[in-house]
Design a protein around this nucleic acid. Structure first.
Lengths: 199, 199
DNA sequence: TTCTCTCTAGACCGGTCAGTCTAGGGTGGG
DNA sequence: CCCACCCTAGACTGACCGGTCTAGAGAGAA
């Protein structure tokens, strides 16, 4: 049995991924979590914003944990990344191209005065980049370059996810993922050249 | 002297780039355009949505025209792309990391039932990809591959723009742009090898 | 039992939302 | 001159927004 608080955060996380911060109403969240209004303001002193921040943290925790798990289960880190991307793509498709990145929509509509929300988003992206970078490092690519690649990886993926959403078609997303994984494999081969055949 | 209609569309275009569709209120638009409410519903039968669609079309028209102009002014298409990216980055910086992509924020919060808005966004991205593809083709890279690269280019740029926004820092954006332009130059060299020196 | 404290509960608040309605100004044609 | 028509104008509407407030349920300690 989940607590009311957990149900609230979970409901907010889903809604943020679907329509962003401005697009979602607290009443809608409360209804989905089967909770009255007082509960929200009991658990989160600053209301909608506080709930959104908790939801962002939860989403990032889930998404990075998923990659960690995939990495632990597979000998090839790039394959782990591939499975991870595939999982997220399937969720997008299963939702009728509604469920995108849990941070992206909010990231694009937040404004400068909402400092706490912005900080949570920035921290979320940083954590995401770091987790991807850790996976890339596991291929043998050195750390600084791995981070560079991770940032590039996240950027391209986010952009592709967005375009797949509006097009209601994931072909573009599949293509971008394949290209990204291809780039990583090429870089890996360059770093650790395959053993030469000896006659 | 701009017409009331033009001022409305322009104000909406700016607001969409800053906070997306759900994040902007019509009253705010009307105030910025110095127009009363009746005008909006006179020019746009379906109100906010109609205005947003017009604004999306205007934004895409402007942004593609800007690239066309840069391409006409420069002998090197990749240099044209570079200048274009630089222009957009400067606008982001000048606005205090508020003014991002005019389509992106809306793209991530629109839902399936808003078919017209979604269609306008999809068409916008298609036009943007096509214009970038045209520029890449001008480097000598064949058309199908140029489109592939353009899609990749747009994705990575959108993702980077988003991350730059939340981080209030354009270093990441600069890096991604440099990488993208590097990839294009590498591909161009591969297609048209430089003339060999003859002793 | 009784006191206390955390969490639940929902009526209620002012404000703002998108959108409607009626009236009036201005300009071109007759 | 006057009529017609396009555009401007803003008061107004009901719904919904995020947020507040008071009341009470329930568990644990004494």
């Amino acid at each position: 049995m989940s607590s009311t608080r957990e149900r609230l955060v979970d409901a907010m996380a889903t809604s943020l991924a679907r329509k962003g911060f401005a697009g979602v109403g607290v009443n809608e969240i409360l209804e989905r979590a089967q909770a009255p209004k007082g509960v929200l303001y009991h658990h989160f002193a600053d209301g909608k914003t506080g709930l959104a921040i908790a939801a962002i943290r939860l989403s990032i925790e889930r998404i990075t944990a998923s990659l960690t798990r995939k990495r632990a289960a597979s000998a090839d880190p790039i394959e782990a990344l591939e499975l991870w991307l595939e999982g997220m793509r399937q969720r997008l498709e299963a939702s009728g191209f509604e469920y995108g990145c849990p941070l992206a929509a909010t990231a694009l509509e937040v404004h400068a005065e909402q400092t706490e929300l912005r900080a949570a988003l920035a921290e979320g992206f940083r954590a995401l980049q770091a987790e991807v970078a850790r996976t890339i490092e596991a291929t043998g690519i050195p750390a600084p370059r791995a981070l560079e690649l991770a940032v590039f990886f996240v950027s391209a993926y986010e952009g592709a996810l967005m375009q797949a959403r509006v097009a209601s078609d994931s072909t573009l997303l599949r293509g971008i993922c394949a290209t990204l994984l291809g780039l990583l494999r090429a870089e890996q081969r360059h770093v650790i050249p395959p053993p030469k055949e000896r006659p």
